[in-house]
Structures are given as C-alpha cells and as structure tokens.
Simulated assay, not measured.
Amino acid sequence: MISVAVEQAKCACPDRVGIVDISRGIRQVGRICCDDACAGHHEDGAGCHHAGCTCHG
C-alpha cells in the first residue's frame, strides 16, 4: 500500500485558481480557503487580496 501526504489544495472559492497550504488554510465544513474573504463567500464583495487574483466568489 502506498501512502501519500497531501499538503496543498485548491482554494474552495470557485473563482480562485490558486492553491493553499492545508496547514495554513481557513477550514470550514468540507472546505479549505486561502483567505477570510473566500471563506466568507465574499459577502462584502472584497477579493482575496492575493496579488493578481480577481476572485469575488
């Protein structure tokens, strides 16, 4: 049996194409997000504040 350690995942925001370190991500039920804005479904309309990213959920 082979064991694989997953350390990164795509941010759960549908607009965001970036990845996040699982140990640093913001965890929600079944989701890992890169930023508070993504984790909050962009309720205030703000993006994730990562350079070059235009996500707004």
Score class of each variant (00 low, 15 high):
M1G: 11
M1H: 04
M1R: 06
M1V: 05
I2C: 14
I2Y: 15
I2K: 14
I2V: 13
S3L: 09
S3T: 14
S3V: 15
V4F: 05
V4R: 13
V4K: 14
V4H: 12
A5R: 03
V6G: 12
E7R: 14
E7W: 13
A9E: 14
A9C: 15
K10P: 04
K10W: 09
C11V: 13
C11P: 07
C11A: 11
A12S: 15
A12L: 08
A12C: 13
C13H: 11
C13Y: 06
C13E: 13
P14K: 04
P14M: 00
D15M: 08
D15S: 01
D15Q: 05
R16G: 04
R16V: 11
R16L: 10
V17N: 00
V17C: 00
V17Q: 04
G18C: 14
G18Q: 11
I19A: 09
I19S: 13
I19E: 13
V20T: 02
V20N: 00
V20A: 06
D21S: 03
D21C: 03
D21Y: 12
D21L: 13
I22G: 03
I22L: 14
S23N: 12
R24E: 05
R24N: 10
R24F: 02
G25P: 02
G25V: 05
I26A: 05
I26D: 01
R27S: 04
R27A: 07
Q28M: 13
Q28P: 07
V29G: 15
G30T: 11
G30V: 04
R31P: 01
I32Y: 02
I32E: 01
I32C: 10
C34R: 06
C34V: 03
C34F: 05
D35L: 00
D35P: 02
D35A: 07
D35Q: 03
D36W: 08
D36G: 02
D36E: 07
A37G: 02
A37Y: 00
A37R: 03
A37D: 01
C38Y: 00
C38G: 02
A39I: 00
A39M: 01
G40D: 09
G40A: 03
H41W: 09
H41L: 04
H41N: 11
H42S: 10
H42M: 05
H42L: 01
H42T: 08
H42Q: 12
D44T: 07
D44H: 12
D44I: 05
A46K: 03
A46S: 06
G47S: 07
C48F: 05
H49C: 12
H49R: 15
H49E: 12
H50P: 06
H50L: 07
H50T: 10
A51K: 09
A51V: 05
A51L: 07
A51H: 08
G52F: 03
G52W: 08
G52K: 10
G52A: 08
G52L: 01
C53I: 15
C53Q: 14
T54I: 08
T54V: 12
T54G: 13
T54E: 15
T54F: 09
C55G: 12
C55P: 11
C55Y: 09
C55Q: 15
H56P: 01
G57V: 11
G57S: 15
G57K: 12
